[in-house]
Amino acid sequence: MPLSPPALELRGLTKRYDDGTSAVESFDLTVHDGAFFGLLGPNGAGKTTVISAVCNLIRVTAGEVLVFGRPAASLEARGWVGLAEQDINLDRFLTVEETLVYHGGYFGMGRDEAVVRAGEMIDIFDLRAKTRVRTPKLSGGMRRRLLLARALMHRPRLVILDEPTAGVDFELRGELWRYIERLHDAGTTILLTTHYLEEAEELCEEIALIRGGRLIARDTADGLRESYDADTLADVYVKAMAA
């Protein structure tokens, strides 16, 4: 069996921001193709920084980032990644449908394909009634839905969700996870950050704990519970962060 390259491979990733903040320090991480992976840690731990390095959104200080074996900066790699950022960043001049179609275009889709795909995403994320509404006129939760739909629009092989369920109602939360699990079952790799530990415990096959820009532990939820002698992931988290 040919060994497929990991979905994500970080080697010695280091990021110091211009103001001197050292956000991530010699960070190594491998996420296997097809994994459902959780990246957990307190505020300021460096989760968003790691993700930004994968998505060509920061200037990396040192280290290497490979996406399915290709450098993260290559066009190929970028086309394979879909990102829903923590902060909602929708183009205020575009409608819901345009947001999706233009994103598809930026990621190489032709018009007809993008329109059909946008229609699917609009149905999945229950935005049909708002198809021709511009993004500033959406409610907060609808904006989050659109942000997620945009991330999935171009059928990425690696989906990165940075706090996707912040501000999302109970109903969508359930639907969203059902849909993400279906994607995962179909072979898509999912990288998730969340502060809802029960969510992570239920969904993620593997979890990395990060604090102060360094990797503290990386294992399955079971493995973590065992090695920290804890009953729940929340207990693991508390013990790991206190250590």
Binding site: N56, L57, Y106
Partner: peptide, 18 residues
């Protein structure tokens, strides 16, 4: 400036474009 300020420029910067 608007694209930077609202950060939707990230959608373009992360896209597969030179």
């Amino acid at each position: 400036f608007q694209a930077r300020n609202d950060r939707y420029i990230n959608d373009v910067l992360s896209a597969p474009m030179h």
